[in-house]
């Protein structure tokens, strides 16, 4: 690795230092301003709301820790926590395996690599609302998939009517959406693995399976952590698909944090309201950061390719 030469600040004249400092401040000021307004202010307001009861229409009233107490006693909150982990249990293994397979397949392609990669990326840029409608029709009781299953095998699958299957079906849809995107991250990781490692392993008599599990997979660790972090963030923030397809049902099993927050903020503003919604969002964020922290602690490895 090339070492970056250290700058001896004393060697720089004072006026130049000041000018650099002013220029630097000037350059980052728009970013800082933007963050202060759209992140800092919003975050402060969110924290403020968690300790208040508000209905948009009259001034917020001090509510202490009551929002937290109410939330911990709210069965729906625990149901939503369970739903989120249930979704993660289906989604992360599915999306990891399929996007690694996609990336490996793509890395073996000699022609049309860009075309295939872009074709999969189309799913990622597709509107959530439109593909939710398409999947609803595809998976309906007398839709094409079930009709085929009924005619060929004599059974149908209640994709969105059976509570557990509904979570799986939504995980399946979201997996379809993200295979292309995550696959490209894995592809970059695969392309970064030096060929010499495989050649050395082959000389030592390693078979394809050993090469995958001993070289490819460990060296994909940074990509994998990145994908898992993004997948966890998505699992805590999913809204469009369950809102459009199942409305949070059946039996509230696809009811997500975002739907819970939205309902309390805007639909139940006279009973629970934005203060309660802010408390849910703070706890959801804390839970998602904890998951990310735990995953990184357990799985992250220092991978160096010299």
């Amino acid at each position: 690795m090339t070492e970056i030469p250290k700058i001896d600040r004393k060697s720089i004249p004072k006026t130049l230092q000041r000018r650099q400092s002013i220029n630097g401040t000037f350059l980052i000021a728009p970013y800082l301003g933007h963050q202060a307004v759209f992140f800092g202010y919003a975050l402060l307001w969110l924290v403020f709301l968690t300790f208040h009861r508000w209905n948009y229409l009259s001034p917020p009233q001090w509510y202490g820790l009551n929002n937290f107490v109410q939330l911990f006693n709210d069965q729906t909150f625990w149901l939503v926590v369970g739903n989120t982990f249930n979704f993660i249990a289906y989604y992360i293994p599915m999306v990891l395996i399929l996007s690694i397979l996609f990336a490996m397949g793509l890395s073996k392609l000699r022609y049309l690599t860009t075309f295939v990669a872009l074709s999969f990326l189309v799913a990622n840029v597709a509107s959530g609302v439109s593909y939710s409608i398409v999947f609803t029709k595809l998976f309906s009781e007398n839709g094409p998939i079930n009709r085929f299953l009924w005619q060929s095998f004599g059974f149908t699958i209640p994709w969105f009517s059976e509570p557990q299957l509904a979570i799986f079906s939504i995980a399946l849809m979201v997996t379809w959406k993200f295979i292309g995107y995550y696959g490209l991250i894995f592809l970059a990781g695969i392309q970064g693995i030096p060929k010499s490692l495989y050649e050395a392993a082959e000389l030592d008599g390693a078979n394809r399976r050993q090469k995958f599990f001993k070289i490819t997979l460990p060296l994909l660790n940074p990509s994998m952590i990145m994908v898992i972090v993004m997948a966890i963030t998505l699992s805590f923030g999913i809204f469009t698909e369950p809102y459009m397809i199942t409305g949070g049902g059946p039996m509230r099993r696809t009811y997500t944090f975002m739907m819970f927050i939205y309902d309390n903020a805007f639909r139940r503003f006279t009973t629970t309201g934005p203060g309660y919604a802010a408390t849910i969002s703070i706890l959801a964020a804390a839970l998602s950061f904890s998951c990310i922290f735990a995953i990184r602690k357990i799985m992250e490895r220092d991978v160096e390719m010299i």
Binding site: P163, G247, P250, M251, R252, D263, R267, R268, T270, T271
Partner: peptide
């Protein structure tokens, strides 16, 4: 004013158990 909560309860405790 509890329209949404009431009808949400109708969904969770009545129409969904019925359909399932």
């Amino acid at each position: 004013p509890r329209t949404i909560e009431v009808q949400d309860a109708m969904t969770v405790y009545m129409t969904e158990p019925l359909s399932l």
